[in-house]
């Protein structure tokens, strides 16, 4: 069994932090891959989810997409896209795979957020003479922000879990230490890399959770009025 001292030694070895496959570089690669994909997915999925929730049409599509997407193995999707698009475009293929993975939860979160707004609120806004655009920007989006961020949180979990596999197709990211360590049977490297990934992922999850709490709007007063 691996001792804590061995992990410590690996983590405090400066050579493991520097260079092309040093932790610093891998960390930034990891983050760039994850966040660019989530950003692109959000730009696509939030407007569509909000539109579906607002119009009340196409709900079945959202439900179908989010349940089908759970059954698709991300590793297979990643490998298939890289293979079909060619290994030289793997950077693009990975981003595409991650965007495909991130869209369903964000779409579901946006749709559910709009859907959960009590009818009385949107009716009151309409009665005050708000246009559809005003209704979306000033009522529906603020009230569903927490749900949208909740969708982003699930997307983040799925995306990061796939980014860890990027080294398998010759890219970097923090999963590199796991893949290389397994191949070289350097278990200090494997475990240290895994622990770093665990730490960073949970930290990110908590940060998004915090943003979710900040944007949550309590509708208790409204419930009492009804």
């Amino acid at each position: 069994m691996l001792s804590i001292a061995e992990i410590w030694q690996w983590l405090f070895d400066v050579t493991n932090w520097e260079g092309r496959y040093g932790l610093v570089n891998l960390f930034f690669e990891h983050m760039t891959l994850s966040f660019s994909a989530i950003l692109i997915a959000a730009l696509i999925a939030v407007p569509i989810g909000v539109a579906i929730g607002h119009l009340g049409k196409g709900e079945a599509v959202v439900v179908a997409i989010s349940s089908i997407s759970r059954a698709i193995p991300t590793m297979g999707l990643l490998f298939a896209l890289v293979m079909f698009m060619g290994i030289e475009f793997r950077g693009f293929a990975v981003t595409l795979a991650l965007v495909i993975i991130a869209i369903p939860p964000i779409l579901a979160g946006s749709y559910a957020g709009i859907k959960a707004i009590p009818q009385t609120i949107s009716q009151a806004a309409k009665a005050q003479g708000m246009t559809a655009q005003q209704l979306i920007w000033h009522v529906e989006l603020p009230l569903s922000a927490a749900s949208i961020i909740g969708g982003v949180r699930i997307a983040y979990i799925q995306v990061v879990s796939t980014v860890v596999l990027a080294p398998l197709i010759g890219l970097g990211g923090l999963g590199f230490g796991i893949i290389q360590g397994l191949a070289l049977r350097d278990f200090a490297q494997v475990t240290s890399s895994a622990l770093i990934i665990v730490f960073i992922t949970i930290l990110g999850d908590r940060l998004i959770g915090f943003a979710q709490k900040l944007t949550a709007v309590k509708l208790a007063a409204v419930e009492i009025d009804r």
Partner: peptide
């Protein structure tokens, strides 16, 4: 929730160090 956020590959290979199982 925190546990759920951990990428599966990272959890697969972190377990041996925690509970002493074989890596593979």
């Amino acid at each position: 929730g925190a546990l759920y956020a951990i990428p599966s590959l990272a959890l697969f290979v972190a377990l041996p160090a925690l509970i002493g199982t074989n890596y593979v």
